[in-house]
């Protein structure tokens, strides 16, 4: 049985397809480190004062935010975190609904199962048991896959540095948390729009706030489940899609989205050698059989040919002999006839 080229390609594609639907993690489910911290961002309370930006820059030794907080024209354009500013507040207009504008703070969401951690090929990111996702610049190669993949556009890169460029982002003030303090933004927010605490408790608090004022909140805690859940939870009265967040995304974490395919890799590595060696063996066997058949046909043809030649030769030899005998007989007859003629003439004299 030989596999045609077409059949091989189809079979391989089908196999990959089938295997790709299997998850790598099996049936187990990890809820995340218990007691880890999170932050609740209540968009109804945010007034866009940007004190969080000021505090964040101070704590991280970045220059003060540009433009200064008193300049409200900063909100005319949407901003994103940069290598010198790990968090920004944006204004989202709400004129269509006839409501006042809404402000939201944007920064690294410190996901439960971070996309950045799973795509880093030197394992430079770690999800700590306390909640924050940390970055280790001592191993980073600078491939920027994490910057490219983050669905919240939270990571920035130091393109201006030739020898020590780092990936930079909000760190949830991990050193401060370890000391028992709150992250700088939560400390600085005058409205208490950022509340720091244990994630499980914050979710309960968020639900309580929603229950108390159903007219002011959408009944959804954003970040509870999106892409596996994040440490930053957002609640508010405006639809999250209008606030620049992706709504309706899967609850599967991003690592889970890719793990199905990656689980096929060892399968390919273990199956291919045998499969391909087998194909090679089959094709070699086909060649060998073809060669043997060809040789057999040739020798048969040769032996058939030599038989025919022999027969032709003996027939020719017989014919030659016959011709010779005829010629001899003819010559004898002729000689006898002449001899008779000669003897006849002598008698008559």
């Amino acid at each position: 049985m030989s596999v045609s080229r077409r059949g091989f390609l189809q079979g391989m594609a089908a196999g990959t397809l089938a295997a790709g639907t299997a998850g790598a993690a099996g049936f187990k489910h990890f809820e995340g480190y218990p007691g880890r911290y999170g932050l609740l961002h209540d968009v109804n309370l945010c007034v866009g004062c940007r004190s969080c930006e000021v505090a964040c820059n101070q704590v991280n030794d970045n220059p003060p935010p540009e433009p200064p907080t008193a300049d409200k024209s900063v909100f005319t354009k949407m901003r994103r975190p940069t290598s010198k500013q790990y968090t920004v507040v944006n204004r989202y207009l709400n004129e269509a609904d006839g409501k006042p504008p809404v402000y939201r703070k944007q920064q690294c969401m410190h996901c439960n199962e971070p996309c950045c951690a799973s795509v880093c090929f030197v394992h430079a990111f770690t999800k700590t048991p306390e909640g924050p996702v940390l970055y280790d610049p001592s191993v980073c190669v600078g491939c920027r896959y994490c910057v490219n993949a983050c669905p919240y556009y939270a990571l920035s890169y130091e393109y201006e540095k030739p020898f020590e460029p780092r990936v930079v982002r909000c760190t949830m003030c991990y050193p401060r948390i370890k000391k028992g303090l709150k992250p700088a933004c939560a400390e600085a927010c005058p409205m208490g729009a950022i509340k720091f605490g244990r994630r499980e408790e914050l979710i309960k608090l968020a639900r309580e706030r929603i229950r108390k004022r159903p007219a002011d909140y959408i009944d959804h805690v954003y970040g509870e489940h999106e892409f596996g859940g994040t440490s930053w939870l957002v609640i508010g009265g405006t639809s999250f899609a209008k606030l620049g967040l992706f709504e309706g995304v899967t609850h599967e974490s991003i690592p889970e989205l890719g793990s199905g395919f990656l689980s096929v890799v060892p399968l390919i590595v273990s199956v291919y050698p045998g499969l391909l060696a087998g194909i090679y063996a089959f094709s070699k066997r086909k060649e060998r059989l073809a060669r043997e058949e060809r040789e057999a046909a040739v020798s048969e043809a040769v032996s058939k040919a030599s038989e025919e030649t022999k027969q032709k030769l003996s027939a020719a030899a017989d014919k030659a002999k016959k011709d010779k005998d005829n010629a001899v007989a003819q010559a004898v007859k002729k000689a006898l006839a002449e001899a008779e003629k000669a003897s006849g003439k002598e008698v008559s004299k």
Partner: peptide, 18 residues
Amino acid sequence: PEMIDKPGLFSAYHRQCI
């Protein structure tokens, strides 16, 4: 504590006034 929605003094002033 997390479960009780009581802001600290700093947030209380600003939330009330603003």
